Amino acid sequence: MRVAAVVVTFNRLGLLQRLVERLTDVPELTEVLVVDNASTDGTGEWLAALADDRVRVRTLTENRGGAGGFHDGLAWAMERGADLAWLMDDDGLPDEGCLATLLEHRDLDFWGPLVVDEAQPERLVFPIRLPGGTAVVHRLADVAAAARDGRIDDIVIPFNGVLVTRELVDRIGLPRAEFFIWGDDHEYRLRAEAAGARIATIVAAQVRHPSVGDLGTPMMFGRTTYNHSPSELKAYCMARNNTVNLRDYRGWPHVLLFWLKTVWFYLLTRPQPGRIALSARGAWAGLRGDFTGHRRYLR
């Protein structure tokens, strides 16, 4: 069985170095495929100087975001004969034994670890909405309590140490490169779900990840949450890509609810009227099928 790690990186050399060092010590891996999104911080030079035959590098001609990177990286892994691809951003760090623990669950098609805050490992970086209800949990203990046979079925946080089988890639294709960032991983999970894929999070497997701040900020008197980001680029892409995902997989009532939440959040919860206009531009672009507008926010 060939297992290829696919790592997408952009201008985070220090984080990439620690990740590659960890991955080259994972005995279950056949190779590590690094997709460099045209970094300008010395990443290309460092990768070129690596003397490890298990690490292969592909440098893109421009920054295509995580979506473009994973689109190309997953295709590359399949071209090289991988039976399983282990997908991850450059800022995560799998625990030792993470892959071995995931591989104990070979009855799945799309599965991954818990992603925990490296500074507070008892907390999740990305909150999880537990199946069968509306509860959103932030604590590792709450997830562990809800697990059955060591896993949470039908839930996974994609592209943070997630495994995907060749068979599933053959069925559903590659991530949507045009999404650039934010929502491309969720769309891939929704597509897998629609195809009947067996999906799960394995509680005993963990990836450490820097805190991402305001994901899951409470709003509407604590009845729901909103994924706020200080980045205009991420906010624009979230409004655009989430609108498309909800329209395609959940229907217009969910689209309208997302728009209502966005207006409420930036009008009442965290007043930033300019964000309402930015989000509206992104949502309208998504409905028109225009995936170029994010370029104005690139720095």
Score class of each variant (00 low, 15 high):
60 L>Y: 09
131 P>S: 09
40 T>S: 14
152 I>L: 15
148 R>P: 02
296 R>W: 03
91 D>K: 12
24 T>P: 00
248 D>W: 02
88 M>L: 14
286 G>M: 13
238 M>N: 05
70 F>W: 05
59 T>D: 07
210 P>W: 00
218 P>N: 12
136 V>W: 08
272 Q>D: 13
76 W>I: 05
159 F>M: 11
198 R>K: 13
52 D>P: 00
121 P>C: 03
232 E>W: 10
2 R>Y: 07
129 R>Y: 06
156 V>Q: 04
281 R>L: 11
268 L>S: 10
3 V>I: 15
288 R>K: 15
258 F>P: 01
42 G>D: 13
72 D>I: 06
133 G>D: 12
13 L>N: 04
171 R>P: 00
250 R>I: 01
72 D>L: 12
231 S>A: 10
145 A>C: 12
98 C>S: 15
199 I>F: 03
28 E>P: 01
31 E>F: 02
118 E>F: 02
285 A>Y: 03
188 Y>C: 02
83 D>G: 12
163 L>H: 01
204 A>K: 11
268 L>P: 01
171 R>E: 10
44 G>P: 06
114 L>S: 03
36 D>Y: 00
273 P>T: 05
145 A>L: 12
238 M>D: 05
34 V>M: 03
268 L>F: 08
179 F>Q: 08
29 L>C: 05
59 T>L: 03
156 V>K: 01
290 D>S: 12
170 D>P: 00
107 D>Y: 07
112 G>K: 05
90 D>N: 12
183 G>K: 09
24 T>S: 10
272 Q>M: 14
289 G>F: 15
128 I>N: 02
153 D>F: 01
105 H>K: 11
186 H>L: 09
11 N>I: 03
156 V>A: 12
75 A>E: 13
275 R>P: 04
39 S>D: 06
164 V>F: 04
199 I>E: 06
40 T>I: 14
27 P>E: 09
80 R>E: 07
78 M>V: 14
293 G>I: 05
140 L>N: 01
23 L>M: 05
39 S>W: 02
31 E>L: 01
285 A>N: 15
